[in-house]
């Protein structure tokens, strides 16, 4: 009897452990890309905090706007002071769900295309965003990637007339996070 109870208890513990598993990173990557005939601008942020719940598909990420690094110092200044106003709006966040998380077999290596939807907050403005991405499983490591195409006007980011030909009206935000496991 004792053995049966012990086995049941161990089984319940194992199920609870699996269901409680979540994955996180504090150093994921988000890049920003603007392409115009005048110039291409790319900036990277490698200080992105993200949490993924493989059971529910819940996904969130948060970053400090001041962590974006541009090739040119002046671009970085303008990005922080004039466009994203990072003193006033220091963080950008996404809180949503991977809708088809059940398609991902976390125990088997592979690239699983998924759809992500949720609320994206930039420059203090929150909009619903849906995009396609991939969950990549390789050797037990999980990487999440997605590209959001964002219209700057939707987030009340104003570009001065003087440089309006240098910055695209829609930008690509690429998310690339390699997760660690958190029980």
């Amino acid at each position: 009897m004792k053995r049966i109870l012990l086995s049941v208890w161990m089984l319940i513990s194992a199920v609870n452990t699996v269901s409680a598993q979540k994955y996180y990173t504090k150093n994921g990557n988000v890049s920003f890309f603007s392409k115009t005939n005048m110039e291409n601008i790319k900036a990277d942020n490698n200080q992105v905090m993200s949490v993924l719940n493989p059971q529910t598909g819940e996904l969130q990420f948060s970053l400090l706007v001041k962590s974006f690094h541009f090739p040119k110092a002046l671009m970085e200044e303008h990005f922080n002071e004039n466009y994203l106003e990072s003193d006033k709006f220091p963080k950008s966040t996404f809180k949503g769900t991977i809708n088809d998380i059940s398609k991902v077999n976390f125990a088997s290596d592979g690239t699983y295309p998924v759809t992500v939807s949720g609320e994206l907050t930039i420059h203090g403005v929150t909009n619903t965003a849906t995009t396609k991405g991939n969950i990549i499983i390789k050797g037990g490591k999980i990487t999440g990637t997605a590209i959001f195409i964002v219209a700057l006007a939707d987030y009340k980011v104003a570009i001065p007339k003087l440089v309006e030909n240098n910055i695209s009206k829609t930008i690509e935000i690429t998310v690339n996070c390699l997760y660690d496991q958190k029980m």
């Binding site: 979540k22 996180y24 504090k26 490698n46 200080q47 905090m49 949490v51 948060s62 970053l63 400090l64 001041k66 962590s67 690094h69 220091p90 963080k91 966040t93 958190k182």
Partner: peptide
């Protein structure tokens, strides 16, 4: 220093203070 990142209290993940470059 770019500030302190967001944590997740439910998961017990603390926010880090970030230093870049």
């Amino acid at each position: 220093c770019s500030g302190i990142g967001q944590g997740d209290a439910d998961l017990g993940i603390m926010g880090d203070v970030y230093l870049v470059r």
